[in-house]
């Protein structure tokens, strides 16, 4: 995992568009794809979504990577629909799928996580009235990413220990020590947060 997540740096118009507006645009595209039933219009929507990739100048390596991840899904769903609902239904579902997945994935590729957090925090601003604090989202995201790194390290150590005891991939020989150490790490993090005054309401 790179520190940028799935973001692909760039300076295209799609990269520069505001994260919030872009998200609304994708939602509109997805809703249109679900409302329309005409394969011709659905084809146009799918083409719009796919054309976004050259417009955003996504390198072909990342395009291929996305196509592999989602292409398998589209092919499997298409084949199943053809089998169960006939070709016409399969085309409608397939085009919907291509539109929604291509657009949503493009959003992820062209939007920095910091910007997403920023626009979500602004969007959730009204929730402050019911006592939530959206500005803590960034802190939560950062802490979670850090914890993923720590736990991945712990998982590796526990796996080595299980191997040394000849327990191999035995589910309990791995999962139980892993969970116990995960809980211990949570306690340590809790103490560290409390020491910094976090959680005082």
């Amino acid at each position: 995992m790179t520190p940028l997540g799935l973001y692909e740096p760039g300076a295209s118009p799609l990269h520069r568009a505001g994260a919030g507006w872009k998200l609304l645009g994708i939602l509109a595209l997805a809703i249109a794809a679900f409302v329309l039933r005409d394969p011709l219009w659905l084809g146009v929507l799918a083409a719009v979504a796919v054309l976004g990739y050259p417009i955003a100048r996504i390198p072909s390596r990342r395009c291929l990577q996305s196509a592999r991840t989602f292409g398998v899904l589209v092919v499997v769903v298409f084949a199943l629909q053809w089998l169960l609902l006939g070709l016409d239904g399969a085309i409608v579902v397939g085009l919907r799928l291509v539109t929604a997945l291509a657009a949503a994935n493009l959003y992820t590729l062209t939007t920095r996580i910091v910007d997403v957090i920023g626009s979500v925090e602004r969007g959730l601003g009204p929730l402050r009235r019911i006592g939530l604090r959206p500005e803590r989202l960034g802190l939560l995201v950062g802490l979670t990413v850090q914890a993923v790194g720590t736990l991945a390290g712990i998982a590796g150590e526990v796996r080595e220990a299980a191997k040394a005891r000849d327990a191999g991939w035995s589910a309990t020989a791995f999962a139980v020590p892993f969970l116990v150490r995960t809980l211990r790490h949570a306690d340590e993090l809790g103490e560290a947060l409390a020491a910094r005054g976090e959680g005082e309401r």
Binding site: T182, L183, H185, E191, G199
Partner: peptide, 14 residues
């Protein structure tokens, strides 16, 4: 403590 609850939420999400 709220901090402990927060930490558990974060660590188990991870």
């Amino acid at each position: 403590l709220p901090a402990a609850e927060l930490a558990r939420t974060v660590v188990f999400a991870a």
